[in-house]
Design a protein around this nucleic acid. Structure first.
Length: 209
DNA sequence: AAGATAGGCAACCGCTCAAAA
DNA sequence: CTTTTGAGCGGTTGCCTATCT
């Protein structure tokens, strides 16, 4: 017997968020803050469940989100942290101010996993993969060089050369918990959300149906 | 040019945990 | 102490876009 659903789903909207819905949610949270996610959609005039609102806010609308590609250095940190923490994405995300667990999880599943495999490392254990089958290697290489990612494929090959010495061994992480990547306060030195939060910036990204 | 396929990402689902009643 | 409720987390799905054939 599972938990009851967080909300009555009848009549609730699902799927991609519209600009209007985003504006309602942002305006509500800016004006009222967040006390109880369950009440947010009702009070904000949204036909969404609270969970959906929370996800939209944390993964997309939060003012302190850092947008743009995950850098090489960030990727390396993610790999190190994953070796230590496993699939604890929220924990890993906490080392990257402005990045969300969802973003890091997606990046891991779509890019880093492949990168590690190319480096001959098991993405789960981070240990060298024992004797990769020859046909697997051929398949992997040809798919990378023949698809739209051919440029990426070449970059990855370059990385193999660059990192071969450090990556062929397991990642020995000797730092203590959170030593060098402490959360920076996104509002540090900023007097209020309003001054930090420019609506035109927020609504200039993404696409709406 | 059009259909097929693959990749990327936003969003949802269902579970766990902790706090409140 | 037990039950209920809400928040958070990780896994998964499905849509959209880019690329290939």
């Amino acid at each position: 017997m599972g938990r009851q659903p967080c909300c009555d789903k009848i009549g609730l909207k699902r799927g991609p968020w519209t600009l209007d819905e985003d504006q309602k949610l942002v305006n509500f949270i800016l004006n009222n803050g967040i006390q109880c996610w369950r009440l947010v959609p009702k009070l904000a005039g949204l036909k969404r469940c609270g969970k959906s609102c929370r996800l939209r806010w944390t993964n997309y609308l939060r003012p302190d989100l850092k947008r743009g590609d995950i850098s090489e250095a960030e990727e390396d940190q993610i790999i190190e942290l994953h070796a230590r923490l496993g699939n604890r994405w929220s924990k890993i995300a906490s080392y990257f101010p402005g990045r969300t667990d969802n973003e890091i999880k997606n990046h891991w599943n779509t890019r880093i996993k492949k990168k590690l495999k190319l480096l001959g490392l098991d993405p789960v254990t981070h240990n060298p993969i024992a004797e990769p089958r020859a046909d697997d290697v051929v398949q992997e290489k040809s798919s990378n060089l023949n698809t739209k990612n051919s440029v990426d494929g070449l970059e990855m090959k370059a990385q193999v050369t660059n990192h071969s010495s450090s990556c062929s061994t397991s990642f020995s992480v000797d730092d203590t918990e959170g030593s060098s990547f402490a959360w920076a306060d996104p509002f540090d030195g900023v007097s209020s959300w309003e001054s930090f939060f420019h609506l035109e910036d927020i609504f200039s990204f993404g696409t709406y149906p």
